[in-house]
Design a protein around this nucleic acid. Structure first.
Lengths: 222, 222
DNA sequence: ATTTCAATTTTGAGTATTCAAAATACCAAA
DNA sequence: TTTGGTATTTTGAATACTCAAAATTGAAAT
């Protein structure tokens, strides 16, 4: 069994790789994401490479091996199912479950996870709209555009929020912006780098482009 | 925050102390219970003593300080609430939840635990009949006699099973012997060191005294 | 081609936990 | 009171992870 440290490295590499489009992850990025000094990341990656979990060439960055990716997806699955469980069953707020799940994901057995999955009815997204990897096999990559790139559409639905920072999520929550919320785009201003949206049943909010880029949207189903 | 290793030592000392009636726990016993070599226990206890969690005099054994006992009770509370949650909500078997809870107890925050407690309606015993320590304050010590000491009573109810071994619990379960079950004592034989009981709606079972000693009983309520 | 600088790796060291095996202490029997 | 023998402690070493700081590399800028 991998230690929870190993699990965290793998998960982090996976997410960095996603963001960078499958390319190798630079040690500096990884170290920053793991909140360790660069030397620590280098040392750790060397042992992960020895275990066959990552491919590593010195000064060239890391990427997950097949074995490593499989493991990373299992961990992500645990994390996201737990998040949803905490929200749906225990009534925690979707803005605060990330850190809780971060701990629990390393302590939850496959058996317990399977029960949680059953209990929730085999969901496919977590409370942030992030896809829950299936128990086996890869999930179909969903293509979503960010709010920052969707100014031409007037009516949209929030599909996913790609930031786990409690502060940002709480801001969104207070303004009625959560996964599933319908929004209307009121204005889109390249000059001041801002976009104003009106969430269903809430007052309009103005967001900077950086913030808007973290909100992924889709066309309303109906 | 104490590491999970520290939490496990404290919990183990607490339980050993309970069993021995409040006396100091010998290093040998502790080492065996923690499944480490004696030297490891000695080393660990020295650091726990430095943190003020235990009282230790070389060659005299350990006992929990007030601080240590408070912590131990918190951990026990987490463990037992989690066990009940796994049984009641996720439908795991009461014979198998011990090991699961053993992991989860170190990863569950106070916030999540409070939600679990609410969800379960503030229960006071876990699936094995073990008392759940309250969030604050000490719990009233319940006096229960073991089945081995209760031969004079004919009708009893199983209150608690003081063994977390999966094998033993599964044996009991298969014969309908679980906390809450009414039983009739059919025979009590000092010579062959065995007792035969008939669990409600099940066939009679014969148990050795060692086994009967692990089953705590009370008088039927009605 | 050389300089320069940022990213990366290496080195040396520390913490927490563990084991194996040697040393010590205590109790109890002779 | 000497001898055991067992429980306990000490010692030395290993593993997994971490940091600080020095050394190295490689690529971009001159």
């Amino acid at each position: 069994m991998p230690t929870s440290t190993v699990e965290n490295y793998l998960k982090t590499i996976y997410m960095q790789q996603q963001r960078a489009g499958g390319k190798n992850v630079a040690m500096g990025k990884l170290a920053k994401a793991m909140d360790v000094v660069p030397g620590t990341a280098t040392a750790m990656i060397k042992t992960l490479a020895d275990s066959g979990l990552v491919d590593y060439k010195p000064r060239g960055g890391v990427s997950l091996s097949d074995k490593g990716e499989t493991l990373a997806l299992h961990i992500l699955r645990r994390h996201r199912l737990l998040e949803l469980f905490l929200v749906e069953v225990l009534g925690l707020d979707w803005t605060e479950v990330h850190d809780e799940a971060e701990e629990l994901e390393h302590a939850t057995s496959d058996k317990v996870l399977a029960r949680i999955d059953d209990y929730l009815g085999h969901p496919d997204t977590d409370p942030h709209g992030d896809p829950i990897p299936p128990a086996k096999g890869a999930h179909a990559p969903v293509q979503l555009k960010s709010l920052a790139d969707s100014a031409t559409q007037k009516k949209l639905v929030i599909a996913r929020v790609v930031d786990q920072g409690c502060e940002f999520l709480q801001f969104l929550n207070q303004h009625g912006l959560r996964p599933g919320t319908r929004i209307n785009i009121l204005s889109y201003d390249r000059v001041v780098d801002a976009i104003t949206v009106k969430p269903y049943k809430h007052e309009p909010v103005t967001l900077g482009m950086a913030a808007a880029g973290k909100i992924l949207v889709e066309k309303p189903a109906t």
